[in-house]
Each structure stands twice: as structure tokens, then as C-alpha cells.
Design a protein around this nucleic acid. Structure first.
Lengths: 159, 159
DNA sequence: CTGCCTGCAAACGATTTGCACCAGC
DNA sequence: GCTGGTGCAAATCGTTTGCAGGCAG
């Protein structure tokens, strides 16, 4: 938790209780929670905390480099307490995002983007697929199809 | 545009004007537009089209495998007409997402996720950094800091 | 003709904003 | 004590839903 103190001092930011507790709540999880999930967890310690503050503080933590807002297919923003290089398993069906360690993939050469005038600072690989919970069920399209016409037995594409 | 006809026939879906035009609008861009951006573009051809329909059709196109909902750090869902393997440059500041070709990175071995019970179907690499427009300006944190206290000259961390 | 798709508007959920008060430095 | 962070509630933005009529097959 010293990292927060250092970062706040460096940036001339007051070190509030909320910032402490929210960072702690985030650090305690590895499931890339949304702001609302953090809110619920934070309220166990600080029942008074407002949703607004959670949003603002999470934003601040990202600024400070203590957290990362991850890329996800869903609608709610999600945060990751890990700022080191790591990768993700993204379920195409339930949109869950899991951390995935693949040391062999941590040393890829950063491609040359000079022609694009883009400064690459880091990378992460998104492995898209189906998580354990979803893979048993059915594929994306099939699920939706079924939902739309439950009585009609779809002919093909069972594979 | 035949792909849409085939897909609709395969799935017993009517081939509506809206589906044609929305897919065309998406296919015409490579900037991973949001539903709203698509809406604006589609209305040039079909002024009557409703926002709802755009959302629904984009969803359908994803089902049909004619588009992909991409992972992005922003709040609005974004769609990609490309379904083949490719990678992305993600600007940490403006949250723009650009396609990035890196043939050398298209053949990575899919890691073994049996222990995680996760079926990997594909992957894509997110290169995070600063785009041309943003890199001249300032780093993420600095930009926000400046916005908060415009008069105060931040000391350090220029690197 | 029949059913699904579309358009409308309202519901809904996530996030932001303005303002008064309180806490950290 | 001053500054700016926080809490509240309302505004805003993105997305979804229920229903009536239109169009593709």
C-alpha cells in the first residue's frame, strides 16, 4: 500500500481513506471488477462511500499508474490492479476476462510502428474463446438463435 | 456483399435493406465505429433507420460471423468488419483503436489452457501506447493533472 | 399471407457533472 | 485555514425492451 503513498506524494495528491480502501479493494481481486463491483466491496469497510467517488478514484488510480483500465467487450469499464505485462482469456459468450500467464509470450518484439507514428508502450494478448462455464452450453450464434425461435429446430451448423 | 446473403440464407434470416446497408456502412470503415457512428453513416442512405435497429442488426451481424465486437477501453461497444486474425493499436489517451498488421505475430502457438478449461478460438494482440495525435501532447496522467490544476506546473516524470 | 424485422418511445444501467461540505496537508 | 476530494442528486450517454405495423420469403 506504500505505492499509493508514494504516488500521491509524487503527484501532490491528498492520500484519502477512500483512495486507500478503493485501491485495496481492487488489489484484492483478480477478476477485473467493474466500478460497481468495487463499490460493493468498498462499502463493507466504508459504508458511506458514494458511487461517484469510486468512479473518480478508479480513474485517479489509473492516472497514477496503480491500475489499468482494461479493454473488454462488455459495456461497463473494468479495472485491473496488475500493471505488469500479462495476458487475458476473453470469453466470447459471457464476456468474462481472466488473467492468463504465458511467460513465453511476454517477450515478443515490439513491431515497428514508425510508419504509423504510434508509440507502443506495452502489449497484451487477448485470447478469445469460450470459458469453462460457457463451452458446455452452446456457441454464441446458436444460443441467440435458439432464444429467438425456441420451437423451430434449426437445421444445420451443429458442428 | 454476397456473404450477407449466404449467411442470412443459412440462418433463415430475412435479408432486409437495413441489414445490407448497415453491413455496408461497417465494411466501409476501418476505425472500429460505435453503433452511433454507424447510425449516422447509415442515415445518409436510409434516413428512416432507427438507432434501435442499428444496435440490433450489428448484434445480428456478429452472430452471423460477419463482424466482431472488439474489446476496447471506452464505454461504447465497437465493431470491426474484419473477422480474420489481426491486431490493434490502442491509444491510452484518446482510446482510438487502429488495425495493425503484423504477419509475424499471426502464427503464435495457442497456449495450453486445458488447466483453465478454456477453449481458445483465436487471439489478437493489443499494443497499447500513444497515437500520433496524442503523443505530441502529453502523457495520460499529465494531461489529467493539467486539466485539474491548469496553473500549477507539474514537476517531473517527463520520461 | 405469415412471421420476423423495424421504428418509436420509454425503460434501464453505467458514468459524469455541479455544488456544498468535510478532510488532508 | 486553504485546497481539493467527497457525497448527493440530477443530467447524460449508451443500450435494451414492448408493442404495432411493414416487408421479405
Amino acid at each position: 500500500m506504500t505505492a499509493l503513498e508514494v504516488a500521491c506524494r509524487n503527484s501532490d495528491l491528498p492520500l484519502t481513506i477512500q483512495r486507500r480502501v478503493i485501491l485495496q479493494a481492487l488489489a484484492d481481486r483478480d477478476d477485473h471488477p467493474t466500478a460497481d463491483q468495487i463499490l460493493r466491496q468498498v462499502r463493507k469497510r466504508l459504508p458511506e462511500v458514494s458511487r461517484t467517488t469510486v468512479y473518480r478514484v478508479l480513474d485517479t488510480l489509473v492516472d497514477l499508474g496503480l491500475a489499468v483500465k482494461i479493454c473488454s467487450p462488455g459495456k461497463g469499464a473494468r479495472f485491473d490492479p496488475r500493471t505488469d505485462r500479462h495476458h487475458h482469456l476473453v470469453c466470447l459468450q459471457c464476456e468474462k476476462v481472466m488473467d492468463f500467464e504465458a511467460p513465453k509470450l511476454n517477450g515478443l518484439p515490439l513491431p515497428d510502428t514508425r510508419t504509423r507514428a504510434f508509440d507502443i508502450l506495452d502489449y497484451s494478448i487477448h485470447f478469445r474463446g469460450l470459458c469453462a462455464d460457457c463451452k458446455g452450453q452452446s456457441r454464441n450464434a446458436q444460443a441467440r438463435r435458439a432464444r429467438r425461435s425456441p420451437t423451430k429446430k434449426s437445421t444445420g451448423r451443429a458442428g
